[in-house]
Amino acid sequence: MKAPYIIMAPEYRHNSAGVRALYRLKDELLKRGYRVSVCQGSDGKWTAPRGSIVVYPEIVPGNPLKGKTVARWVLNYPGLLDGDKEYDKSEIIFTWSELYYDAPLLMLPLIEDFFRDEKRPRSGSCFWVGKGLYTGLVNDQKHPSDAVEITYAWPETREELAKFLNEKEVFYTYDNNTLLTREAEMCGCKVVVIGEKLESDYDEFIRDYESQIERFIEVTQKAADKVKVSFGVMINDWQRYDMVLRQSEIDPAIHCHWLKSPESATKGLNKLLALWKLRARISQS
């Protein structure tokens, strides 16, 4: 049975690659036949149904939906924008970039085909602050005073953004960790990163995205299906055990621990409960 996904994501907006990534993940999962819902927050009361897989971006602290199977998608440096810096050991972690976290990659194509150099006449420059707001670099203005600012609200659409980038010669960015850099390059802009420049691995890893998402699905589905059951029995009559319980139509891979004639039921059952720590298929105490 396919475990459904619940993705916690802000309301869709085109000007955040992280948000677009979460909704692209939803689309990719739907395309593969999985049930997916997007949850934009938690009222603290509603909890994720058992058997579901909850996907949180790194900006969500903790496990507000109390998911039993949690996948954490680290789309930026942990704790930089919001959320925890460390994650629960039980969480399955994927990262957009190895720069953010030492975990398997999950990178999805987010740049549309219309981000290309149209070879049109260009003039002037533009700049982007974005997450550079948190670094302080923006206080020391490095862009020309007549540069046009790209903001979260403008241009209004992705198509208009691509058209605008095709009109500008230089793109300045105070945010060294934004897909806008790659989009500007693809539109033919000269890119100037204010501060430390991060090498983009977008093109390289995006080629492999199908296998990344398959791996994400495989790992998360396996984790959701991991409820392990063992049997335990106290035996005082081997014949009855052989004739009845051992004839049960239970998957032989399921462990059955047995215990012969304990001093009391409670002591025997507690020994059996302790035996579950062992991996042996059939254990005797």
Partner: peptide
């Protein structure tokens, strides 16, 4: 008891499943 099972079924020897 994370190394083993999540659920234990304590059963009598004469139960059939």
């Amino acid at each position: 008891e994370a190394e083993g099972a999540d659920i234990a079924v304590l059963t009598h020897q004469d139960m059939f499943f």
